[in-house]
Write a protein that binds this DNA or RNA. Structure first.
Lengths: 134, 134
DNA sequence: TGCATAGGTCTCAAAAAGAGACCAGCACTA
DNA sequence: TAGTGCTGGTCTCTTTTTGAGACCTATGCA
């Protein structure tokens, strides 16, 4: 329990892990969360959970992502082991992105969070309106 | 189904919602996810799930957050309705932050994701090592 | 008087993200 | 045969976000 969020068996454990001090910023859980937490990562994982997509398809699917961020986010997802990248020798070569087993396993809890967001987005909107009015 | 990720009953629904085009960037689910997804938000929600904390306590609890980002993130969490802020008329005044019902309800799926991260951080680390070696 | 504590704000530098031009290689068309 | 488009990117520049740290007000205490 060296300054990292680990062994989260209970809320008390969270507290212990978080207060342990030292090299807190190197917490592996925060490290993993950072990879999942990006602006575009959850969106791309959700898309790829449906079926594999090619680069251009993803770009059209998410019209407001820049090509630069799409490249970069896919590379990060690939590096973290969530996404598999496969090049097909067509002319011109096409590249397909798909979820790995690890990616699919991560999709489940992520999906829970997205579902929560879907169910509660009105409550959040109302909270914002009330806050802004005050 | 106007260009937003809504009614996510199935993966097919995700696909439909994502491909619906138009004002895709205004998707309410993405909007809510953005608030949850920040660099510090999950960490603070996890901390406050344990018990209410005061400003200075949170700052000491998360030593690598800047005071500026702590203020800002707490304000956002408050605006979105996850966190309640209460000022006590001590001298000098102290401020306590606690999770609202909405915040506690959001904590559950978030916690699932954090648990996943805890269980799989080695797999992610291995994936990164393999990727960087290649 | 002088320093500490509480919960911030303000300013400036660094890092990240967004916009959009550019590129290579091939196929198809005019 | 020159032009056009498609593929999946990279490069550069601008804007936004974040981080580091000084500063602030009011009070209590030595």
């Amino acid at each position: 329990m060296d300054g990292k969020i680990v062994n989260l068996k209970s809320k008390l454990e969270i507290y212990k892990a978080m207060t342990a001090g030292a090299n807190f910023a190197d917490c592996p859980v925060r490290d993993v969360m950072r990879g999942i937490n990006g602006k575009w990562s959850p969106l791309l994982v959700m898309a790829l959970a449906e079926k594999p997509y090619r680069f251009g398809e993803l770009r059209r699917l998410v019209p407001d992502i820049s090509q630069r961020m799409l490249t970069q986010t896919l590379l990060e997802l690939q590096r973290d082991g969530y996404v598999h990248r496969e090049v097909f020798p067509t002319k011109p070569p096409s590249v397909e992105y798909s979820l790995t087993d690890l990616g699919r396993s991560m999709f489940h809890p992520l999906y829970q969070l997205v579902q929560w967001a879907e169910l509660n987005h009105e409550a959040v909107r109302d909270a914002r309106a009330a806050f802004d009015a005050a």
